[in-house]
Amino acid sequence: MARKEGGSAGGDHLGREWWWDKIAQAVLFGGGISAIVFVIAIFVFVAQQGLGFALFDLDLATFFTSPQWRPTSEPEPIFGALALIVGTASITGLAMLVSVPFSIGAAIFIGEFASGRTREILKVLVELLAAIPSVVWGFIGLMVMSPLLMDVFDVPVGVSVLNAGLILGLMAAPIMTTIAEDALKAVPDGFREAAEAMGATRWQVIRQVVLPSAKNGLVAAVLLGVGRGFGETMAVLMASGHSINMPSSPLDPVRALTATIAAELGETARGSEHYRALFSIGILLFAVTFVINLLADVFVRGRRASR
């Protein structure tokens, strides 16, 4: 093939493949930013119904300090979310109390002690547990856990902070275990080998080398567990008793923020105060989970940067 000497380059024209590449890039870029678009859209659509109400009509002092959630009372409804916030916090808190130690313990066992087939099987089991839908967990709380608690504690009602907390703990544990195990796995084997070469036992290696280097990842795992518990809806709706109440004991029934929306949205008239108050709760949920996820991301990033 004759090529021009000097001057313009031979064969340099923008062929079909060049244009196809540009088109593909544009389309894929659209896909790439869709996640951002959706997060913004979620905020916009929830805020559109609830933000105006939250800013101008809702008495925020009442919202955060009054335990009276009476959205339909006449003539003056009361929108106090304190009992709901306390409900959510107590359930999530109890769930974390139960599941964080177990999750991290299980992650250490699976990641550091177990080996070969045992480890594979345990990992698969944990993954399967994480897949059980939340409505099934709610059902288990209502139909299995509740009678059990009534027998054990000799109480008339089995749906309570304790019930929902245990259910939520069982739900969140597999997820936290998986993330925590990932964090342990991210510690380079070189660290372990160096410590073992100095004569450290397995447990000494874990405590003095693995856990400190995996600290940020473990914090992220716990945070994601908290976020998950905080936002859980169906299980909490069915297992908590769903009654507005400032709990004085773990055996008291409570009501959660998420469950309130799930239970009431279907019965409100679109655009009514009640309806917009529920969307205001949605804004609160969105904001809190956003911050939790952001924090978890910062910790995960910190882990990467420190390596």
Binding site: R3, K4, E5, G6, G7, S8, A9, G10, G11, D12, H13, L14, G15, E17, W18, D21
Partner: peptide
């Protein structure tokens, strides 16, 4: 420069790479 033309002046970098 490949054959006297700066490679950076090729508009179609893929055609350049094919050579």
């Amino acid at each position: 420069a490949l054959d006297g033309t700066d490679v950076r002046r090729w508009r179609n970098v893929y055609a350049l790479r094919r050579r």
